[in-house]
Design a protein around this nucleic acid. Sequence first.
DNA 1: GAGAGACGTCGAAACGTTTCGAAAATGAAT
DNA 2: ATTCATTTTCGAAACGTTTCGACGTCTCTC
Lengths: 337, 337
Amino acid sequence: MNIGEIAKRAGVSRSTVSYALSGKRPVSTATAQRINDVIDELGYRPNASARALAEGRTRTFGLVIPPASTRLTDVQLAFVASVVEAAAVHDHDVLLSPSGGDHDRSFERIVTGRRVDGVILMEILLQDPRVDRLTSADLPFVTIGHVEDPAASWWVDVDYAGLISRCVRHLADLGHQDVVLINRSDELVAAGYGPALRATTAFTTTAEECGINAHTVCCADEPAAGQACFEEIGTRWPEVTAAVTINEAALPGVQRALHRAGLDVPRDFSLTGVIADRLAEDFHPPLTAADVPAVDMARMAVDLLLEQIGDESATPRHRMLAPPITLRSSTGARRRA
Amino acid sequence: MNIGEIAKRAGVSRSTVSYALSGKRPVSTATAQRINDVIDELGYRPNASARALAEGRTRTFGLVIPPASTRLTDVQLAFVASVVEAAAVHDHDVLLSPSGGDHDRSFERIVTGRRVDGVILMEILLQDPRVDRLTSADLPFVTIGHVEDPAASWWVDVDYAGLISRCVRHLADLGHQDVVLINRSDELVAAGYGPALRATTAFTTTAEECGINAHTVCCADEPAAGQACFEEIGTRWPEVTAAVTINEAALPGVQRALHRAGLDVPRDFSLTGVIADRLAEDFHPPLTAADVPAVDMARMAVDLLLEQIGDESATPRHRMLAPPITLRSSTGARRRA
DNA sequence: GAGAGACGTCGAAACGTTTCGAAAATGAAT
DNA sequence: ATTCATTTTCGAAACGTTTCGACGTCTCTC
């Protein structure tokens, strides 16, 4: 059941079969027909490993996801699914590698064994060892989020700063005077997670520009933390009437805390931020939020990766996405004293 | 940077390097040392494609997930992550293939190109074309959930019937007289999705045994549907005081509907079912539920797959898991009229 | 000191493709 | 009929491993 078998039965050489299959050189219609008949009859498909060896490419991407221990958020999940789909459009497969900051086995196996043609890195830090590893291994990669020197590498990112800024202005326009940012975890911020840092900066700067008071709080990626966090906000800064968040995972807890405090959204309290659209829509009430365009990001990441693989000497390109803020019903004019 | 280069620098033949690496034949400690030094110096790692070609195995599993269009539930997501992790323990990688019932390109590419050593199939139907495809392709596979003839194939499953049965008894013990099963979608039931069918049967049978009234309703895998569904229950069977569900995705909507109807859980209404533990714990109040052991299932699936790959003529084995029901605070004695 | 048994190493073949250069077949033009 | 250009096909090399049989080279034993 290999190409030689097909060649024998069709009475041609192996190379002719190969050309008939790939179309890289013309083959007479008569022979092509004969070859195709045999192939259909035997259900032949070229062996992927042999092809990869000969071609020097695997038609496979590596997708580095956060380690299994950390629960994936809705955005992340949607992104993974979208990457697989986008890759499939180009007849590529996706190899998953859960990896934290240091090089674990799975990551090394993918990078070093020439198992993939390129890598998509999720959740990168401003200084990320995996980026260095990929660079030194000379393996094409695209990051989701950018590293310190934006011009030096290929990436797709969401303009967190711009979005958070617009969220703050939106709240200021509604008359809110005291707002809080519910950020992601302490650890991520400490590790230099870009979106968390940019969100913080944009948040405080914009609040200052608007002349309103800004507080910031970090919160682990889980509902329980969201609840604790929001309760803490209530006691520390009771004057706060609106929150902006980039921490999806904490939302159920925030909602619970709001409910427990007897606060109605948006009457007593406004809530907005950067949230996966499905989550924002399923919230009660639906959240006014910047919908993270996971599908678009995945498609762009795949496109950039293919471009880079096609021409390794190409100068790095990147895409910064600024999704619109969708007005739903979680923000309203300030009412609370 | 291939094995020949290492051999040359270490002054040995390629085969010796190979043996030093694999340990399949003894190599003198002196040469082994020399070879390892060269390898460390050059950072050499064998090319995965070449190795796969020579060995006839790829050290990769295929994981067939529901298509990207369908939103993955928490259980499914946890399972995917756990499979990747379990595979990594055995130095294997995981190739993702989103696939519906028919053979799409991605699935075919994986099956037929000998890209993987074996496949794990999620969300299978009682009669699933993909199972037939894998069987005819003679590729080892393990299904999550079983097909019509349980003895004929390798699988890992959760004893939905037993669990649902225990949920019903639990509710009956608490005095509930009228209960409802919130099943998964119509389409899945119609397509012959095992868990949904077994849950239905077990639910009605057990209710009968306990002498209580049972109703069943199908619900799409999304919060909005859950809400609509629960509202319908309220109008059609107002006497119902407890629900059992296997539809995680609908839960947020159910919760919203409960809240809107002014029903307190567990005072006015009891809620239980088969739910991912993280979701059950994050619910408000935490749900009494059978926690789907995603991590264990993933590990078992990988173990079974490896066993099968190791001995292709082995007789099919399977594991039926019956996780304990964790009593949290969403079920209580019947109070409502 | 010759034969046997370990042990360590080597060379060659195999895995199943792709691809390159060249050869053969075809057809048209002289 | 011969040449030339074009189309079609072929054979061989290459990709980077693993693995098998065989070939030294020791050491031990009688």
